[in-house]
């Protein structure tokens, strides 16, 4: 990965303050640089501020402090400026939309391409994205006639098709069966490596975070409760403190971290 000789992009987050109106959610958050080519899992209990942090990184909520991609300061950039570097996949899926999967994917490119991309190229890229997610056969189906999981895959397609430098995914696997969960996680890891993308992915499945992410950030009440390799960040003590559960962290016969929750306290 590092062998290419190219320097990998880095995202620096320093002194970040985010809130809604008067309500402060994240205060003075610092994170050691997130590096291109790696997947960072963001975990934490409900209302910890995971979505808020991702939306701030995407420029969707006003934030004070610094979000720097290499030497580009992202805070203060316009919506369009932000979107050139960062793409965010929202947690909520749109309802009652009379668009096909292909049209929705296409709109991710056509609505802001600034004349740089030809229509034929946009079509090809949209179909490539669907093919990578294994949903080519859904291309001409309406979003409204899909199952929840299929809809989530379609939503993911709208994000990866933009080929951003920073890919922010908010619980992209919450509606998927185990086959598709693994498929998506593998794809995300592949994309990160292939294109040196900085991926931040919110997950509730801790074992999956441990297995596919190189780094795990645990968020609690808008602050970082743990940060490091899966082994370092996911410990019984952290889980007890953050999730209020009694849990064991063990390795399965293949050597992957597993979390066994004994009881909520």
């Amino acid at each position: 990965m590092q062998g290419t000789g190219e320097t990998l992009p880095q995202l620096h987050i320093g002194g970040l303050h985010v809130g809604y109106g008067r309500r402060r959610i994240i205060e003075a958050l610092d994170l050691p640089a997130l590096e291109g080519g790696t997947v960072t899992a963001l975990i934490g209990p409900n209302a910890a501020g995971k979505t808020t942090l991702l939306r701030a990184l995407a420029g969707l909520v006003p934030a004070k402090g610094s979000i720097r991609l290499d030497d580009v300061e992202l805070t203060g950039l316009s919506v369009a400026g932000h979107a050139r570097h960062v793409t965010y996949m929202p947690q909520a899926l749109p309802q009652r939309v009379a668009l096909t999967v292909f049209e929705a994917t296409l709109s991710a490119l056509m609505s802001s391409r600034g004349g740089a991309l030809s229509t034929a190229d946009a079509h090809a890229r949209a179909l490539d994205a669907l093919a990578r997610l294994g949903i080519s056969d859904l291309a001409m189906r309406g979003l409204d006639e899909l199952s929840g999981g299929q809809r989530q895959l379609a939503s993911l397609a709208q994000s990866i098709v933009r080929e951003p430098a920073v890919l922010l995914l908010d619980e992209p696997t919450s509606a998927l069966d185990i086959h598709h969960q693994l498929r998506v996680m593998q794809l995300v890891a592949e994309l990160a490596r292939e294109r040196s993308i900085i991926v931040v992915i919110v997950l509730h499945d801790i074992a999956q975070a441990a297995r596919y992410a190189q780094r795990v950030v645990v968020l609690q009440n808008g602050a970082v409760a743990a940060d490091g390799t899966p082994e370092a960040a996911i410990t019984p003590e952290t889980l007890a403190r953050v999730y209020r559960v009694e849990a064991r962290v063990e390795r399965c016969s293949h050597g992957f971290l597993q979390v066994i929750v004994d009881r909520a306290v």
Binding site: R55, V79, A80, A83, P94, S111, S155
Partner: peptide, 21 residues
Amino acid sequence: SWRMTALRLGEDRARSFGISV
């Protein structure tokens, strides 16, 4: 029209496509 099509996918989504909603 393309921007309005994208807006059907949600406001956050459209903004992360670079559309000033």
